[in-house]
């Protein structure tokens, strides 16, 4: 059961990681951050990524269950698992963290496009998000 700092340190071990943060997407609060951040201001960065995450986590286009009942295992838990933004400045993986209390938190990993491996990083960050709240 790692804490926030341990989780961020482990995120930086992911190949190609440039920076990582834990953010509350309702308030835009940067709960913790490590490494670089695009633009160099982790707090501004948190507020901006929080906006994007909120849209995905809240709007019905992404959150309504399918009408045919095909929600099986995926029907449990958070409606959205992660967001991936492929940008000129790198890959961004935003992974929602599921907690047993009411919260709105995600892990944001910023990856270098040349040295990062998106598929691998996505799996690692999913694992970290799960262990963060064990």
């Amino acid at each position: 059961m790692p804490g926030i700092d341990e989780c961020l340190l482990q995120a930086m071990v992911v190949p190609g990681a440039r920076g990582a943060s834990i953010v509350d997407w309702t308030s835009g609060l940067a709960i913790g951050s490590i490494g670089d951040s695009p633009g160099g201001d982790p707090e501004a960065n948190a507020a901006e990524t929080a906006e994007l995450a909120r849209m995905a986590a809240e709007y019905t286009s992404f959150t309504t269950r399918t009408a045919d009942g095909g929600d099986g295992e995926l029907g449990k838990g958070l409606p959205v698992e992660d967001l991936i933004v492929t940008a000129h400045n790198g890959y961004h993986i935003i992974r929602f963290v599921e907690t047993d209390f009411d919260s709105s938190v995600f892990l944001h990993l910023w990856l270098d496009r040349d040295t990062g491996n998106l598929a691998l990083a996505r799996l690692r960050i999913a694992d970290l998000a799960e262990r963060l709240v064990l």
Binding site: D24, F101, V133
Partner: peptide, 15 residues
């Protein structure tokens, strides 16, 4: 409680 859970919840309450 997990350490991460406590920190996330407590920081949320603090701010």
């Amino acid at each position: 409680l997990g350490c991460g859970e406590l920190e996330i919840c407590h920081l949320g309450a603090l701010f």
